[in-house]
C-alpha cells in the first residue's frame, strides 16, 4: 500500500515536471532566431506557400495560442508535422525511437553486467593487481567519449579487420522482419526469423559496445567503491565470523546493498543514452532517435524538437521511477520507510 502511494505521488509529480518541461521547450524552440518555415521551403519559395505552411502549423498565431494547439494535439497523440521529414512527428518517433531503444537496451545490458561484474571483482580484490587493471580501464572508459570508441571500433573492427558491419541495422540482403515493436532484434525473435536476428545482433555489437563503455566504466568504479567500503563493515565481519560461505557473503550480504548507488547511476546513464547516442548513431549510420533529435534542433524543426524533448523527459521520469522502485527493493530501509508513509 505504501509503495502504491509512493508510486502515485511520483507519477503526480512527474506530470507537473513534464508540463513545465513542455512550456520551457516550447518557448525556447520558438525564440531561436530564424524562420523555420522559410528554412524548410527554401529562399525562393513564394511567400504565399510559406504563409500557407505557417498557417497550417499555427505559427501565425500568438505564442500562448500556439502552445494551446500543440498541447491539445499532444494530449490526443498528435505532435504535429515535421518540417523536414514532412510527415507526422509521431510517425517519426515510431520509426526512430525503437532503433535507439534497441541500441540503448543492449548497451544498458552490457553496462550493467560488465560494470557490476568488474566493479565487484575489483572491490573484492581491492588494492591488488586485479583492482589496478580494472581501475586503469575504468579511467580510460570514463574519460573517453563514446564517439571516440565508435570511430576506433569502426576503423579497427570494420575497416582493418572487417569483422563487423559498419553501417545500418541489417545487411541489404537480409529481409526485414515484419514490424511489431520496431526493434529489429525483438521483431526477428518474435517471428522466429533467426537469420535476421543474427544479422541484427551482428550490426549492433560495435555501436552498442561503443555506447556502453563509458557507463560501464562508471558503474564499475561506483560498484568497486561501495563494495570496498561495505567490505570493512561489521556485519560482513560478523557473517564471516559465523562461518557464512564466502560466496553467500559476496552475493547476498555484500553485493546486494552495494548495488544501490550503482543502480541509481545506471538508470540515469541508460536514459542519457537515448539523447547522447547522436554521434555513435551518426558514425554507424544508425537511423535512431538521438540523431533525429539533433537534426531537428539544427534545422529548427519546431514540432520535432518539442516531441524529442518530451519523449526524453518521459523516459527520464519513467526510468527514475523504476530506479526508485528497484532501490526500494534493494534497500529495506527505503521500502519500509515508504510503507510507513514517510
Amino acid at each position: 500500500m505504501g509503495i502504491l502511494r509512493f508510486l502515485a505521488k511520483r507519477l503526480l509529480f512527474s506530470v507537473f515536471v513534464l508540463f513545465g518541461l513542455s512550456i520551457l521547450i516550447f518557448l525556447i524552440s520558438r525564440v531561436l532566431p530564424g524562420d523555420p518555415v522559410r528554412m524548410a521551403l527554401g529562399p525562393r519559395a513564394p511567400e504565399w506557400a510559406v504563409q500557407n505552411l505557417r498557417e497550417q502549423m499555427h505559427l501565425d498565431k500568438p505564442l500562448p495560442v500556439q502552445y494551446y494547439y500543440w498541447l491539445v494535439g499532444a494530449l490526443h497523440g498528435d505532435l504535429g508535422q515535421s518540417l523536414f521529414t514532412r510527415r507526422a512527428v509521431i510517425d517519426d518517433i515510431k520509426e526512430f525511437l525503437p532503433a535507439t531503444m534497441e541500441l540503448a537496451l543492449f548497451a544498458g545490458v552490457i553496462m550493467a553486467i560488465f560494470g557490476i561484474l568488474f566493479g565487484a571483482i575489483a572491490g573484492r580484490y581491492n588494492n591488488t593487481w586485479v583492482d589496478n587493471v580494472v581501475r586503469v580501464f575504468s579511467y580510460i572508459g570514463v574519460v573517453t567519449p563514446s564517439f571516440v570508441f565508435a570511430i576506433l571500433f569502426l576503423l579497427l573492427f570494420g575497416y582493418l579487420l572487417g569483422w563487423f558491419p559498419t553501417a545500418g541495422r541489417l545487411s541489404p540482403w537480409v529481409p526485414r522482419p515484419p514490424v511489431i515493436t520496431g526493434m529489429v532484434t525483438v521483431d526477428a525473435l518474435l517471428t522466429g526469423n533467426w537469420g535476421a536476428l543474427g544479422d541484427a545482433l551482428w550490426h549492433m555489437v560495435l555501436p552498442a559496445v561503443a555506447l556502453a563503455l563509458g557507463g560501464m566504466a562508471q558503474e564499475a568504479r561506483i560498484t568497486r567503491a561501495t563494495i570496498s567500503d561495505n567490505l570493512k563493515k561489521d556485519y560482513i565481519a560478523s557473517a564471516k565470523g559465523f562461518g557464512v560461505p564466502e560466496r553467500l557473503v559476496m552475493l547476498k550480504y555484500l553485493l546486494k546493498p552495494s548495488l544501490i548507488p550503482t543502480v541509481s547511476i545506471l538508470g540515469l546513464d541508460f536514459a542519457s543514452l537515448l539523447g547522447n547516442a547522436f554521434l555513435v548513431e551518426l558514425i554507424f549510420n544508425w537511423p535512431g532517435f538521438s540523431r533525429y533529435g539533433i537534426n531537428a534542433m539544427l534545422r529548427k524543426d519546431l514540432n520535432a524538437i518539442a516531441a524529442v524533448v518530451m519523449v526524453l523527459g518521459v523516459v527520464f521520469v519513467t526510468v527514475n521511477i523504476i530506479v526508485d522502485l528497484v532501490v526500494a527493493w534493494l534497500d529495506p530501509r527505503i521500502r519500509l520507510g515508504a510503507e510507513r508513509g514517510k
Partner: peptide
Amino acid sequence: VRFIGTTEPATIRTMMARRE
C-alpha cells in the same frame, strides 16, 4: 541503386575501403 543518408567521414572511408 541505394542512396545512403550519411556523410560521416570515418563511415565513408570504411565503406569505400570495404567496397560497400
